[in-house]
Design a protein around this nucleic acid. Structure first.
Length: 945
RNA sequence: GCCGGGAUGGCGGAAUUGGUAGACGCAACGGAUUCAAAACCCGUCGUCGCAAGACAUGAGAGUUCGAGUCUCUCUCCCGGCACCA
């Protein structure tokens, strides 16, 4: 081994400690400020590959920015409240506090091995009373502002952890932490009103330069939908059923109304109807016993009609039945919907099952815009009703299709109604176009559709209302077809399988699909029909007019629910609330903060909050507030702790305020936040919500906490599978650090793939070794030339170095450390071929290496006899000289035939002449004269023959 | 089902705005060195072909002098949401 990494790492760390290198002076004004944040870890007690990936790669950027003259704030701390500590207490009888602090101590030591340049002096621990005092203080502020609220709600309950979970912590109906199937419970809980900020959380995304997938995930989570409240009066009563719909324009097609089982009107309406009250009650109680998960798992539609009561469709005035069905959610919208089976899949499914009427009010519209039958924009559209005939052979499974002669159009027999009904018109067209005499009308096919096209033969624009109809031929008896018809098209028998591909226009295809696979709900926009005075209008365009017409109100709904923060757990931040003898909540006054977590508790899960077992807490409340006052026993969701930690970093030890206003003004918003994609919709949204709420309270200077956000990828096992103990593919980074050194592991992780996108990269067993080899080559290079007295830097060499410096800096800015390292490797490969390298170049090289391999670079810096630390140097100033020549690719017909190095100021004629003289070009031209020459100076000459 | 992102050698990946496809690295192969091996060093390395060259960025079409990159259709993979009216 060319170098002893253990020795080097030890020496470097001692040197950095002596120089106090990573203490950020937050007041330093002369440099540009850069707040680089990385998600702080939970102190699980063991540093795994994921931690290395998160912290050591981000550290590369922190170090590089410092070299580039920035005042970089790169803090660290621990998200130290949470379940594992408590589980350790339950399982092994350990003290959660001791367990946590022991783990923290261990992880601090492990983090130190990676050589990360964290400023430990600003460390925060969320479980420290000095921290959670301010979590409590901020909670109190939100409470005073009406943003923290106590109410009864159906909550997700994990029977194993014996606690309530936030919606976000339930994954596929299972507890995010322990995987147990989640139950539902009805409890009084604390909520933070994130819904009040739904719109602003959405708008705020617009200006953030985040990746689209992160923004989209948040948008989907917020789930904005615009629609209207419409009211359906109950026949013979004063009451009304209020529904929410995003498609109010389909109200004419609402043929029944559905209430969620938990809807307030269900029991009273059942009583009025009377006749099936028992059945309704039974249905409601059965669904109440199911979790939301169970309800949505079984997608089969169930429901009960409220017999004896009817609602009135406000558009048609018709009476429609009322159902109770669990496919309608009580927690969204108004808990009631108007059902439009023709235009909503769920309503369609329910209507089919219950044999309810399906009324078609939106006609699908096809406009032919391409091809020979495209609508002529300068001509008016002539309306006409028409029939499209699907005709089956009298004995075989074949269908009668039509192939036009003059145009590439293939479809079915189609013709205008001319005042007849569908059956008559169809029979007549079949007779005229095909000669078949005995077609039997079987049925209509689905609903009508609108098609706008240019009628090639009749030379007019048509707006046809197509009605599909199914006919069966009784026999093959056929008349002679008129000559006129024969010149227009041929008829053809096509087998069932081939019909779909035989037919050309999409609208005729749709009729075929409806015939062969059945009709469904049409959920798109189109032309309104069966909608009184709105008939013929575009559905999207008429939407709000219809809302006005039926006296509805335009509203916006959000999918996001308020943030449930109560946890029936011990190891969390106590909710700073006490109850007076009447049971009203009061915030614990600031002078009593921190509102300490009691220590005399029983951890055994009983279904009660552990804090309820503390005598000290009850005593404390009685002592401070008086007899009859009782404490809140729940603790806060740990996501509350982590929603503001980045503010505390700036002023982590302050006993008088949560953070320093002046420093926040200087350092916020955070320049770049690096983390895992698993936090996209929870932590990131909560932190943004907190920031906006605190901004409104004038407690913070900015509304959005993070300018840039980067989600890193995942490191997989060597088999490409997610690392897990059961698969036996877990890579222990410590082994590799021991064997190859921290620098090799760092550089390997940075090289494995782009750090700016959430991909997944398998850990290659040879990868770290190869990085070690590379570092040894750099070492040998420096050692070989470090005694050299030669100091003449050639032009070519200085250009190579400048190019590498620029590339490394640029790629690092984009978090593309893989290509940055590649650029460094290219430079080393080049330098190894040079017999003598000046010391100034070596020094620059070591500085360039230092963010990636901080320990080795420090050692090499000393080998060069330099003073101070390499990490206190400046990133070399880049001077890229302008060259007089440039490379130009020569192509013939777009294929590369040669490469020229031409003077930059060469004329086009000269450049082309030089290109044409190339032997390969001469060959490719076959003596022909180019018909076109594309010349882009500095890039390409393309000769087109 | 809907939304978002993606698909490039045996593998991880590269290719700032449409302009030399496969940078850099791994693995593999050949050589040199060695008593031998490891390490190191030199070379080969998309496919077909002796070569010239042809063909190649999930499949198919299109736009363009020129497409991994832009447009359309389809397939598959990853992520998010999902009975949210």
């Amino acid at each position: 081994m060319a170098y002893d990494h253990k020795e080097i790492e030890k020496k470097a760390k001692e040197k950095w400690a002596t120089l106090d290198l990573y203490h950020t002076d937050l007041l330093e004004e002369s440099k540009e400020l850069y707040y680089l944040l990385v998600e702080f870890p939970y102190p699980s007690g063991d540093l795994h590959v994921g931690h290395w990936y998160a912290f050591s790669v981000t550290d590369i950027y922190a170090r590089m920015l410092r070299l580039r003259g920035k005042n970089v704030f790169f803090p660290i701390g621990f998200d130290a409240f949470g379940l594992p500590a408590e589980n350790a207490a339950i399982k092994h009888g350990l003290d959660p506090l001791e367990w946590t602090y022991k783990n923290i101590a261990r992880m601090r030591a492990q983090l130190a091995t990676m050589g990360a340049s964290f400023d430990w002096s600003k460390e925060v621990l969320t479980c420290d009373p000095g921290y959670y005092q301010w979590t409590q203080w901020l909670f109190a502020k939100l409470f005073e502002q009406g943003l923290a609220e106590r109410r009864e709600a159906a909550v997700k309950w994990c029977p194993k952890d014996q606690t309530v979970l936030a919606n976000e912590q339930v994954i596929d109906g299972h507890c995010e932490r322990c995987g147990t199937v989640v139950e539902e419970k009805w409890l009084t809980q604390w909520f933070l009103k994130i819904t009040a900020y739904a719109e602003r959380l959405l708008i705020g995304l617009e200006t953030l330069p985040w990746r689209e997938e992160i923004k989209e995930a948040q948008r989907a989570w917020i789930g904005k939908s615009e629609g209207a409240y419409l009211e359906f009066p109950i026949a013979g009563r004063d009451e009304k059923i209020k529904v929410f719909t995003t498609r109010p324009e389909t109200v004419f097609g609402a043929t029944y109304v559905v209430l969620a089982p938990e809807h307030a009107l269900v029991s009273s309406l059942a009583l009025i109807g009377g006749s099936n009250e028992k059945k309704v009650e039974e249905y409601v109680s059965v669904t109440a016993g199911k979790t939301e998960r169970e309800r949505s798992e079984n997608r089969k539609k169930t429901g009960v009609r409220l017999v004896g009561v009817l609602a009135i469709n406000p558009a048609t005035g018709e009476e429609v039945p009322i159902y109770v069905a669990d496919y309608v959610l009580g927690s969204y919208g108004t808990g009631a919907v108007m059902a439009v089976p023709a235009h909503d899949e769920r309503d369609f499914e329910f209507a089919e099952k219950m044999h309810l009427p399906i009324k078609h009010v939106v006609q699908q519209l096809f406009v032919r815009t391409r091809g020979i039958d495209a609508v002529h924009l300068d001509m008016p559209l002539e309306k006409r009703a028409a029939v499209v005939c699907v005709i089956k052979h009298w004995s075989e499974d074949k269908f009668l299709c039509v192939r036009w002669k003059s145009v590439p159009w293939r479809g079915f027999v189609t013709g205008g109604l001319d005042g007849e009904d569908i059956e008559m018109a169809g029979k007549r067209e079949i007779q005229e176009e095909t000669g078949f005499r005995h077609a039997r009308f079987v049925r209509r096919i689905g609903d009508s559709i609108s098609v706008q096209f240019y009628h090639v033969n009749k030379k007019v624009n048509r707006w046809a209302e197509f009605q599909g109809a199914y006919f069966e031929l009784e026999d093959g008896e056929q008349d002679e077809v008129s000559k006129e018809e024969r010149t227009i098209h041929d008829i053809e028998w096509v087998s069932r399988e081939e019909v779909e591909s035989f037919i050309t226009p999409p609208d005729i295809k749709l009729i075929w699909q409806r015939y062969s696979t059945g009709n469904g709900a049409y959920t798109g926009p189109g032309i309104l029909m069966n909608s009184a005075e709105f008939n013929g209008r575009n559905s999207d365009e008429a939407r709000w007019d219809i809302v006005a017409h039926v006296g509805g109100r335009r509203v916006t709904q959000y999918r996001i629910r308020d943030w449930l923060v109560s946890r029936q757990r011990y190891w969390g931040c106590p909710i700073p609330i006490v109850y007076d003898p009447e049971g009203n909540p009061h915030v614990v006054p600031a002078e009593h903060l921190p509102w300490l977590l009691p220590t005399d508790v029983d951890f055994k899960p009983t279904g009660e909050a552990p804090l309820a077992s503390s005598i000290e807490l009850k005593e404390r409340v009685r002592r401070i507030f008086g007899d009859g006052w009782t404490p809140e026993y729940d603790t806060l969701d740990t996501f509350v702790d982590s929603s503001w930690y980045f503010l505390r970093y700036l002023d982590s030890k302050d006993a008088h305020k949560f953070s320093d206003a002046t420093l926040m003004k200087k350092w916020l918003p955070i320049s770049r936040y690096s983390g895992g994609s698993e936090h996209t919709t929870m932590h990131l949204l909560y932190a943004r919500f907190f920031m906006k709420a605190l901004y409104d309270l004038a407690l913070v200077p900015v509304e959005e906490p993070f300018i840039e956000r980067f989600n890193r990828g995942l490191i997989m096992g060597p088999d490409g599978q997610k690392m897990s103990k059961s698969k036996g593919n877990v890579v222990n980074p410590d082994e590799f650090v021991q064997k190859y050194g921290a620098d090799a592991v760092r550089i390997y992780l940075a090289f494995i793939g782009p750090y700016n996108e959430p991909g997944s990269y398998p850990w290659s067993l040879e990868g770290v070794a190869s990085m070690r080899k590379f570092l040894e080559r750099v070492t040998s290079l420096v050692e070989k030339h470090c005694k050299s007295t030669f100091d003449d830097v050639s032009h070519i060499l200085s250009q190579s170095i400048a190019r590498a410096q620029l590339k490394i800096a640029e790629d690092s800015d984009r978090f593309k450390f893989n290509t940055a390292i590649a650029a460094f490797m290219i430079l080393i490969n080049e330098l190894e071929k040079i017999p003598s390298i000046p010391k100034t170049v070596l020094a620059e090289l070591v500085i360039m290496l230092s963010p990636f391999a901080p320990h080795l670079a420090e050692d090499l810096w000393e080998k060069l006899g330099k003073e101070g630390s390499v990490h206190q140097q400046s990133w070399p100033v880049i001077v890229l000289a302008i060259t007089a020549e440039q490379e130009v690719v020569v192509q013939v017909n777009g294929k590369r035939r040669g490469l020229l190095t031409l003077a930059k100021n060469i004329s086009e004629a000269e450049a082309v002449a030089t290109a044409r003289a190339l032997p390969n070009v001469v060959n490719a031209l076959f003596g022909k004269e180019p018909v076109r020459i594309v010349y882009i100076p500095g890039k390409i000459i393309n000769l087109v023959i």
